[in-house]
């Protein structure tokens, strides 16, 4: 089996799909993944693919024109997943997609489509949770910075929501795990930025700044709970502890 390995970014993944497809080894004889395996196997051959604009664009066009733009946006969304088999599943779904057309994502009786659905849903759920649980911190006057630690690479999926919500503020959301961020200057469009190590260490300390509304929020958070209905199990169910890392009310 030949294993195609690429970096975890969308353009590199598309190039990887291109290379895997054009290797002509037979779909059952190849596998795609976005990180080098922890344990290499003697029987497999490993190929590292790097980003190539031409290859990426031809896959992009093929999916958009031969399947549908909806399917393209769905697979791009699912590609934010950190699951090991995410890219491979996308590849398998594309094989079915080129055969059956735009309705492929509804054919959940295929196990690859069902798995794709699961991955897509978990990314969507996580993105939604962090839309809820992102906490901005005001550093200096009117400069809002938030840190999150998600499992998937979802920071890009948060941009549109917060851009609509606060178009006229300066804000930035930083993914501490994957060192990615989105930045929005006041009244401008937001953009995605991969952070260098230097930038990242400088940004780490933003939560130490004193923000008076954080204290007011804690007061509110404590007094709004009804003690007769105390139910930590339900609270943990709805707001899992691992998602609370940057939620100021729990600090």
């Amino acid at each position: 089996m030949r294993v195609f390995i690429c970096e975890h970014n969308w353009e590199a993944m598309l190039s990887c799909i291109y290379d895997a497809w054009s290797s002509k080894l037979g779909h059952q004889n190849i596998r795609l993944c976005t990180s080098a395996p922890e344990q290499y196997s003697l029987l497999d051959e490993y190929v590292t693919v790097s980003f190539d604009r031409g290859k990426a664009e031809s896959v992009m066009d093929a999916v958009n024109l031969k399947i549908s733009p909806q399917v393209y946006s769905e697979i791009a969304y699912a590609a934010m997943s950190s699951e090991e088999d995410a890219l491979d599943t996308i590849y398998r779904v594309l094989i079915l997609g080129f055969a059956y057309g735009p309705n492929v994502l509804k054919m959940v009786s295929y196990k690859d489509v069902a798995r794709f659905f699961e991955i897509r849903r978990s990314v969507g759920n996580e993105a939604h949770h962090f839309i809820e649980f992102v906490r901005f911190h005001e550093i200096r006057k009117s400069l809002y910075v938030a840190h999150i630690e998600p499992k998937n690479h979802i920071v890009g999926a948060l941009g549109a929501h917060f851009n609509d919500r606060m178009p006229s503020e300066n804000w930035m959301i930083i993914d501490d795990v994957h060192k990615e961020s989105i930045v929005q200057p006041k009244d401008e469009d937001f953009y995605f930025k991969k952070l260098s190590d230097d930038e990242f260490t400088r940004l780490l300390c933003t939560e130490e700044e004193n923000d008076e509304y954080t204290d007011l929020w804690k007061v509110f958070f404590d007094s709004i709970a009804i003690s007769e209905r105390f139910n930590p199990k339900l609270q943990r169910n709805l707001f899992p502890i691992w998602k609370r890392k940057h939620a100021v009310e729990f600090k």
Partner: peptide, 20 residues
């Protein structure tokens, strides 16, 4: 632009108090 905020039909919860 120039305003603060939007509204989402499904509603968004931002936190969960000690009573869940």
């Amino acid at each position: 632009k120039g305003m603060l905020g939007n509204s989402c039909a499904a509603g968004i919860c931002h936190s969960f108090a000690a009573d869940g």
